[in-house]
Structures are given as structure tokens and as C-alpha cells.
């Protein structure tokens, strides 16, 4: 464990806490893409298949349970909670995310570290996570005005993988066998998707103005 990875995990946790806060405090999920949240449930379930077989550390197991539990809770809330589901902007959340699932799975069948069930699903989860934010970013562009909590949620979500890139660079120079090229390349693509969001987020922060994404 290094400081970059720990910072990345904490930033990821903060993004989830901000989203849960928004939904529970405002009893609203307006501006949140249910499709992105559903993709994250698939990402965590596919990635943490080894939850009960490989024990790495208490921290690792606890964080996996938190990520799986929170992503399921968010999807449940947006689909089933009487007050929250009414605020879901279904007509704005139109990205055909099934193609992202299919594409990621096909890519995982072609590009993986080892042709085993667990490794295929691990690579699938890495590729899917890279594109999972797309429905949310498209929805933000459509809805134009972004409320603070939603903006902070997307910001922390983007920042976490940026910390992971620093972690991979650090591990590359400090660990002889380290080679996570699948996660690294996918993480770079993932963070690149946030580039324009980060730019407009920084502009709005600098001008102390509301976050406006050009339609």
C-alpha cells in the first residue's frame, strides 16, 4: 500500500459518501445517471469475485464490501425508494449502456492477463469501469446546470483514478515485477474522459460560479 493508492481509495470513498449524502439529504437523485450506477454494480461484482477466496487484508475486504454494498444501495434507492425514484430524470439518462457492457466483455475476452474465469472478469471490470462514467457525463451535458453535490461526486470519482495512476507509476519504479498494463492503460483512458469536466469544474471554482457544462 502506498500513499497514492490510499489517497485514491479515500477519494473514491468520499465520492460515494457525497452521492449517498446527496440522495439521503435531499431525497433526490436528480442529475444522477442510474445507468452509470448500475454499471458500477457490475464493475464491483465482476472485480471482487475473489472476495471470499483471496484474503489480502482486513482493509481490502472491508473496502470491497463497502463498494459493493454502497453501489447496490444507490441503485436500489434510485429504482425502489418511493420519494427518490420520482426525482430520477429518466428522459435525460438515455445512454445505451448495454453496449458498454458488451464491448468491455468482448475486449476482456481478447485482452487479459490470463485466460481464466476470474482474470477475464477482472479485465472486464477494469474496462467497464473506464467507460462507466459516460452515461453520467452525457447526462450532465444534457441537464446543463449541475448541482454542487453532483459536481463534487463526479470530481472525486475522476480524481480517484488519477491518484491510482500515480500509484502505478510509483509501483513501477519501486517493485521489480510490477506490471499492471491493463489497469494502467484503462485508467489513463478513464481519467481522460474526465478531462473536459475537470476543466469546466476548475473554471467554475475559479470564477466562484455555478458549474455550467456546454450542451
Amino acid at each position: 500500500m502506498n500513499i497514492f493508492r490510499f489517497a485514491g481509495d479515500m477519494t473514491h470513498l468520499i465520492s460515494i459518501v457525497v452521492l449517498l449524502l446527496k440522495i439521503y439529504a435531499t431525497k433526490s437523485c436528480s442529475g444522477i445517471s442510474l445507468k452509470t450506477q448500475e454499471l458500477y454494480v457490475i464493475v464491483f461484482l465482476a472485480r471482487y469475485l475473489d472476495l471470499f477466496t483471496d484474503f489480502i487484508s482486513v482493509y481490502n475486504t472491508v473496502m470491497k464490501l463497502v463498494f459493493i454494498g454502497s453501489s447496490l444501495a444507490i441503485v436500489w434507492c434510485m429504482r425502489m425508494h418511493r420519494a427518490v425514484k420520482r426525482t430520477y430524470d429518466k428522459e435525460l439518462d438515455t445512454f445505451r449502456h448495454y453496449f458498454l457492457v458488451l464491448g468491455s466483455f468482448v475486449l476482456a475476452l481478447l485482452l487479459h492477463e490470463k485466460f481464466t474465469f476470474q482474470e477475464i472478469f477482472w479485465a472486464f471490470s477494469i474496462y467497464l469501469e473506464a467507460v462507466a462514467i459516460l452515461p453520467q457525463l452525457v447526462m450532465l451535458q444534457r441537464s446543463g446546470n449541475v448541482d454542487n453535490l453532483t459536481g463534487q461526486y463526479v470530481f472525486f470519482l475522476g480524481a480517484y483514478r488519477a491518484f491510482y495512476i500515480l500509484n502505478w507509476i510509483y509501483r513501477f519504479f519501486t517493485e521489480p515485477h510490477f506490471s499492471r498494463w491493463i489497469a494502467c492503460l484503462s485508467g489513463l483512458v478513464q481519467t481522460a474522459f474526465y478531462a473536459d469536466f475537470f476543466y469546466y469544474y476548475f473554471i467554475s471554482w475559479k470564477n466562484n460560479a455555478k458549474l455550467q457544462l456546454p450542451a
Binding site: 481509495d9 472485480r47 483471496d54 489480502i56 500509484n167 515485477h177 489497469a183
Partner: peptide, 10 residues
């Protein structure tokens, strides 16, 4: 080296 066998990152 077994460190490639499992993924120690989240």
C-alpha cells in the same frame, strides 16, 4: 512470482 496471481488493488 505469485504477486501477479491475485489483484491486491481495489
Amino acid at each position: 512470482e505469485d504477486d501477479d496471481d491475485f489483484h491486491d488493488e481495489l
